[in-house]
Amino acid sequence: MDLATTGLTGAAYWLPIVWAVLVATAIFIYVVLDGFDLGLGILFLAERDKRHRNIMIQTIAPVWDGNETWMIFGGAALYGVFPNAYATILPALYLPVLIMLFALILRGVGFEFRSRMHTEKAQNLWDIGFCGGSFVATLMQGIILGTLVSGIHVEDNKFAGSSLDWLAPFPIFCGLAVVCGYSLLGATWLIWRTESDLQSTMRKWAGILSVAMLVMIAGVSVWTPALHTTYMQNWTAWPQILLVAPVPLAVIAITGVMFLALRGKTSRRVPFFCALAWFFVSFTGLGINIWPYIVPPAMTIWQASSPPASQAFLLAGSMFLLPLILAYTAYAYHVFRGTVNEHSESYH
């Protein structure tokens, strides 16, 4: 860290830190929002009842465009404030990124098209597109994360690895972990937003997925420090250990609340927020882990940065635009609040 920041003072030092926090926040918001609608997509085919499928769709129909916009924002922000990272990560992860994009296209249009099909067969095909696309996109997001954490081979400021580096055990494990996690978000979202039979089914799913999620969190936590010595140091060095030590405790505490809530049939929202809390804790742990790198182990946030003139220009607008965006996004969710059942107004 000292090495990377030598000679950097003032804006050139602080702006990248501010942006690293902002980009991480944006990615987290994306994970939260698109996480539950991707997860809902993964669980989609497991639900055989057509009416239930329509209800599932209705819970996200008014908001999914906005959820996906956070991903576009992530891309644009990286491009603008960390262009060297953008230009390294994307070629390095060329195939998983493109497979993810294909999958997101299929699921997005599957979502819009399915209800406009006149035959059962055509609708089933787009249901498969929606579910399969959601699954593959999620898997690829996990693989991208896993590959990034395992480290990207960079020489001369350019990606110098092979195009199949991502097909390795750790990235694939991360992919499956994210699939479990998003499915859990989807299931708990549906517990919140639906009623009766569908809600009970989702409670069952949420229980199974919670167990799977815990196993995955434990697996990734044990595996990650073994990947690089700096990771081990990051986790055990003073004062970071003050941040790291509460993480397992937090996970255990959340687990307790989650299972209590899943058993008590009354609390509709608590499971969803427990799932979010798991994500938050894991995400923070990961952030501490790779800090101050953005492309571990080759590029720090300072090395990846665009000039202060660019970062400052975008920051100036973000300071009031992002709160405004959060405000009207919250309003849109508020308008479509409440549980959805088969008597609700149809959106398609």
């Binding site: 491009y79 603008g80 665009s306 660019s310």
Partner: peptide, 10 residues
């Protein structure tokens, strides 16, 4: 990127 990225961000 330093020029076009922020425009896309906006």
């Amino acid at each position: 990127g330093p020029i076009l990225g922020p425009l896309l961000g906006y």
